[in-house]
Design a protein around this nucleic acid. Sequence first.
DNA 1: AACAACGTTTCATTAGGTGGAACGGAGAAA
DNA 2: TTTCTCCGTTCCACCTAATGAAACGTTGTT
Lengths: 252, 252
Amino acid sequence: MVDLNQNSEKHTVRAVERALDILLCFTEASELGLAQITKKVSLHKSTVFRLLQTLEQKGFIIKNSETEKYRLGYRILELSNHLSGINDPAILFLPEMQRLRNEVDETISLYVRDGLDRIRIQAIESEQPIRRVAPIGARMPLYVGAASKVLVTFENPIERSSIMDKLEAQQMIDRVSFEEMINEIRSNGFATSFEERELGAASIAVPIFNKSKKLIAAISISGPVNRLTHEKMNNNIKELLEVASQLSNLIH
Amino acid sequence: MVDLNQNSEKHTVRAVERALDILLCFTEASELGLAQITKKVSLHKSTVFRLLQTLEQKGFIIKNSETEKYRLGYRILELSNHLSGINDPAILFLPEMQRLRNEVDETISLYVRDGLDRIRIQAIESEQPIRRVAPIGARMPLYVGAASKVLVTFENPIERSSIMDKLEAQQMIDRVSFEEMINEIRSNGFATSFEERELGAASIAVPIFNKSKKLIAAISISGPVNRLTHEKMNNNIKELLEVASQLSNLIH
DNA sequence: AACAACGTTTCATTAGGTGGAACGGAGAAA
DNA sequence: TTTCTCCGTTCCACCTAATGAAACGTTGTT
C-alpha cells in the first residue's frame, strides 16, 4: 500500500485524525450510513462506529432517526459562527468587495491558502444570469487557477519553496515551468487564468498583503470567458490592484 | 473528583472527545494560546499540544503565525456549507419566516433540539432599533424560554421522559412543577416566556411537526417585553400557529 | 542575573483504542 | 416459508499508541 500520509514527521493522534476524516466525508454527501463511511475512510466497521458515537455525543454529528443515517450536527454551525474574529478578512473586506462587484458586475472571490489548498472565504456573485457561482468555504488545489498562482507567488521565499517541494513530490507541477510562470506573475503583480480549472471560466487575481507586507489573501474577479475577455481584463486589473492595496490597509 | 461525564454507558473514544472539547473552546474566544486551552479543558500541556497539532494538520485549527495563538480553521467553514441538506428546515422555512417577520416586525427564530440544548438554526431579526438579536447557531439550555418548553412538551413520550430524567438528575428542574407547566402548554398549543432567560425579553413559541406528526422544530416571535405585551402576543399567536402548520407541510 | 511563563520535544508506562468475531434484525432472493 | 446477504451494534483479548512526567529552549519580566 502506498503511504498517502504527508511526511508524518509531526506527532499526531491517530484516533482524532480518523474522527476528523469521518467528518470530512460529509463534504461529499450530506447523509451517510455506517457502511458507506467505513468504505470511504477504509477503517474497520466497529472503529468507525465508535468514532461516530463520540462525534454524535458531542453534537458534531446527528443520527437521522428516520433514515437511520448520519448527518453533520449543529455544533458545526455553532463553531462556524465563531470563525470570524475581529481581524477576519472575510468580514472586513466585504464592503469593498461589494462595491467592486457593483462596479464590474462579475463575481468577486476572496481566497486564503490552507496548506496545499486554497479556500474561498468570502464571495459576492455577479447579478448576471450567466455568472461564476462561488460557494463560500470551497476548497481547491493550489496549482491551478489565478488565485492559486497568486497565493504561491507572493508567499515568502521559504514557505513558497516548501509548497513547491510538496507539490512537486505529489507530481502536481513541473518545477521548472512553474517557477517560470511564478516569476512572470511576480513582475506583473497579478495572475490570470482562462479555462484552466473550469471550462468557460476566466479570472484575474491579485494579492492582498497586511501592513507588514505579509501575504494574507488573494482577491479575484471571475466570470465567463466570453464576457471576461483579455481587453476587459486589462481594464479591470488596475481597478482590482487599487482595491487590493486599499484592503491591505485594513488589516494588521 | 466529581464525575462530570454524562452516564457513560456508551463506548466512546477519549482522545476524540478531548479534541472536540478543544474545538468547542473556540466558541468562547476566537484566539487561544496553548496554556489557555490547557486550563479550559484541564488536560496535560503535551496532550493538548498533540491534539492541537492533529486538528491543525487536518485544517480544523490554524496557528496564527503572528500572535502564535490558535484559531478555528477553514475546514469548519467548509463543513458548515454542507449542513444544509435538501430537507433542511433552516433553508425551507426561510421565505415564510421572512414573511412573518415583515408582518409583525419582531425577531423570528427557528430552534431544534440537540440533546439537552436547543439550537437556533435560523433567524430573521426585527428591523426596529430595539430588537431581540438572534445569532444563528447559538446553543441554549432546554429548561428555560418559550422555545425550550415547546421542544420538550411536544416531543414523543419516551423521549420526553428521558429528557426530563436527565434534567432532573442535573437538578435543573423540579419534576412536578415542570410537568404541570408542560401539561398546560400542551393543552394551549403554545408556550410563552417573559423575562425568563433574558431580562427585558419576551417570546411566544409554537411547535412545527413533520407530515408524520413528529416534532421537528420550534418557531418563535421574540422582542422586548414592553413591545411584546400580553395583548399583542394574543394577536400574534393565531398568526404563528398558522405559519407553523404551513411549515409542517413543507417537511417530510 | 534570576525568574517565570509558555511552547515544544522526548520517552517509558500502561491505559485504552483496536479489530476480529459473533449477534440480531431487516430485506432480498430462492 | 426458508435461506442469504447486508447492515448496525455489542463484546472482548491483545498490544498498539495515547498519555503525562520531565526536561529543554525561548521569550519576556522582575
